[in-house]
Amino acid sequence: YIGSKISLISKAEIRYEGILYTIDTENSTVALAKVRSFGTEDRPTDRPIPPRDEVFEYIIFRGSDIKDLTVCE
C-alpha cells in the first residue's frame, strides 16, 4: 500500500487525500505525502472546515485521530 493514493477522514470529520508514505506501527502513526485537505464537506460537525487549496508536503496522523481510511487506487 505504500505509494498508494489514500483518502483519510479524521475524527474532526476533515477529509484528506495523499500518497501513503509510511506506517509506523510502533507509534501508531500514518504519514501521507502531497496531501490535500477537503475540509468537512457535508459531514455533520460542530465546526465546519472549508477545503484548502495548498498541497502539504507531508502530514503525520496519529492512529487515534483517524476515523476512516480508504485506498483510492
Rank of each mutant, 00 (worst) to 15 (best):
K5G: 10
I19V: 10
S4Q: 11
K34H: 07
I59E: 12
T45S: 12
T40V: 00
Y58C: 11
D65I: 01
E41V: 00
I59H: 15
T29F: 05
S28F: 08
E57A: 08
D68F: 01
D42A: 08
S28M: 03
D68P: 01
D42Y: 04
I19G: 01
L32G: 01
R43D: 07
I14G: 02
P48Y: 15
K5M: 11
G18M: 02
K67L: 09
G3K: 05
E26A: 06
E26T: 15
Y21M: 14
S37A: 14
I9V: 06
A12S: 15
D24S: 11
L69N: 05
D46G: 13
A31L: 12
R47L: 11
F38Q: 05
E26W: 06
T25V: 09
I9K: 02
V30I: 10
S10W: 04
D42C: 09
S10N: 11
K11V: 10
P48S: 12
N27T: 07
I23R: 12
P44T: 09
I6T: 04
R52Q: 14
I49P: 00
E13L: 10
T70P: 03
T22C: 05
A31M: 05
S4I: 03
V71R: 11
V35G: 06
R43V: 01
P51L: 05
I14Q: 06
P50W: 08
Y21V: 13
E13G: 13
R47S: 13
S7I: 14
E26C: 06
R47V: 10
P50Q: 09
R15T: 05
P44K: 10
P44R: 13
D68G: 14
D65C: 05
I60E: 15
S10T: 13
A33V: 13
L32H: 00
E13H: 11
F61V: 05
I6M: 12
K5P: 11
F38I: 00
D24N: 15
E57S: 12
E57G: 05
C72I: 13
V55I: 11
R47A: 12
K67G: 03
T22L: 09
A12F: 04
P44I: 14
R36D: 06
E26P: 09
P50Y: 09
R43A: 02
K11A: 09
I60G: 07
S64N: 15
A31V: 09
T25E: 14
P44Y: 10
G63A: 10
G18P: 01
G3F: 14
S64K: 10
T29I: 04
L32E: 08
V35T: 03
T22V: 09
I14Y: 04
G18T: 00
A12V: 11
E13D: 13
S64G: 12
L20R: 05
G63P: 14
D46S: 08
F61Y: 00
I59M: 13
T25Y: 09
S64M: 06
V30R: 07
D24V: 01
R43G: 09
I23H: 15
L20S: 03
Y58G: 11
I23C: 14
R47Q: 13
V35E: 02
G3M: 03
G63M: 12
I19L: 09
R52P: 06
S4G: 03
V55R: 10
R62C: 11
P50H: 15
V55P: 11
T40E: 00
P48Q: 14
I19R: 08
F56A: 09
V30P: 02
S10F: 00
A33F: 06
P48F: 10
T70K: 14
F61R: 00
T29A: 07
I60L: 13
I9Y: 01
I66Q: 00
A31D: 00
I49K: 10
S10E: 02
